[in-house]
Design a binder for these strands. Structure first.
Lengths: 249, 249
DNA sequence: CGTTATCTTGACGTACATCAAATGTCGTGG
DNA sequence: CCACGACATTTGATGTACGTCAAGATAACG
């Protein structure tokens, strides 16, 4: 339950950055993974002109729930925890945002969640006004956003099933399966996961306590389903039984 | 955990229905509440030509998780439970769809959830092909769908917080507050809620058992926060304390 | 290498689940 | 109108998975 002090970001001025050298959007590594790929290469300059590149240090909060939602942002590197808090400090992490993920879609005038950098995070900010103008000119991007939102909705329903009905063991197994799929979707297959988030993050994502996460890890290890060479890496020793344990429906 | 036998719907042929009398979309009571309002009145005929009006009897399942997702649908009357099942029958209701709600947005080729009529449900079906063509011609409708999806995403995050971190009492109070807001959004204010869903539905929506729902209702009643004149109506006796109990963050 | 944060493990408590039975509700037909 | 059955809901007794509290073990870091 880390309470970050204040937002503290390093902003590279967009105009100066975009004008001086080759279009930054053209060479952006995150573009193929994000909604920006909906814009053709010739129009990328326009995209670059409204994007503000920002870097956030680990542990820093860059979106605060309840603040006026003036900007959207697109993660280009690193991982952020997306979460909501109750008045007494209970925290629910609703997702981990990574390269290509788009934050702040909500129509409401205030953010419905907070976002905090786990490791070093890079992102592009777009003001609501600018983005809306852009969307009007590029319907393909709007369609792409709709697809992204739809997929997130499906993921959210999966997570509701997990939080409402699965046991601690099923929750952790489901989490590991999902992490593994994310690795595989990124090209490199393999049987290992590198966890950027802490046990506390995993606990707050799965709706259990840190002790339960730890004990469940230990039990999966005892059952030879996983191995934990070090704290941050999980080796999947028996994928079939992991899927079983996840109640993959 | 009602397992409905099979889909059984009454379909009114669209062409015949649409041609014979005034454009059904023009007089549709659900239009102002749904994405259909994004289409101007002169173009409604086109909308009507691709919509298939369907009626579903109480208890009948009209969308089955895992089935090929050939159609979208728009609820025009009644209430449906949207849910996911685990292999052993555990159920999580992810939402209650009502007039104006749009189902089946997901990009995937199969439905990610099941939908079952609670009371008599009326809906419009659109084939994926037809709707995509329509969206291409009416970007306003696409924008509207994006807004709807964004709002649902916010609601989903709220529900994750509820399922992951709230106590049974907080869950039920939150549910009642949300139901009350839905009534108020529909124009008529008031201090009473008419529940179309059963206690089992509420339990599966809140991630607890039916016994816990019942006991929690009894306790809220004992605390003079609500009254239950009959099983399906909840009278809010003390709104302030209900909000408190919901941990409205 | 101390210092501090993170993680694991153990002992114990509790909110909610499970099992079981009583009570209430509603439709149906005599 | 009332009796009956089927089902939904409430209530009670008891069990348990997970939470809480507390102490070590490990890893991270200046």
């Amino acid at each position: 339950m880390t309470t970050s002090p204040a937002v503290s970001v390093i902003v590279r001025p967009p105009a100066a950055g975009a004008r001086g050298r080759a279009d930054p959007c053209l060479t952006c590594e995150a573009r193929p993974h994000s909604v920006c790929h909906a814009i053709d290469e010739r129009s990328l300059e326009r995209l670059a002109s409204i994007a503000v590149v920002t870097h956030v240090a680990p542990g820093k909060t860059f979106i605060v729930e309840g603040d006026p939602a003036g900007e959207f942002c697109n993660i280009t590197a690193g991982t952020a925890r997306i979460y909501k808090l109750l008045a007494d400090g209970r925290r629910q992490i609703t997702g981990f945002a990574q390269r290509g993920d788009f934050l702040g879609l909500a129509v409401s005038s205030t953010y419905a969640f907070s976002a905090e950098a786990i490791d070093e995070v890079s992102l592009c900010r777009f003001s609501r006004r600018n983005l809306q103008a852009l969307l009007a000119d590029f319907p393909a991007m709007e369609r792409c956003l709709l697809e992204v939102a739809s997929n997130e909705l499906v993921a959210a329903q999966d997570q509701m099933l997990l939080l409402g009905r699965k046991t601690a063991r099923e929750r952790l197994a489901s989490f590991l399966v999902a992490q593994l799929q994310r690795v595989e979707a990124g090209g490199q297959s393999g049987d290992r996961i590198l966890l950027v988030m802490t046990r506390t993050d995993i606990a707050d994502y799965l709706g259990v306590t840190i002790e339960t996460v730890s004990r469940t890890f230990t039990r999966l290890k005892a059952d030879r389903i996983i191995a934990l060479p070090d704290i941050r890496t999980v080796v999947i020793a028996d994928r079939a039984r992991l899927n079983e344990a996840a109640e993959a429906s």
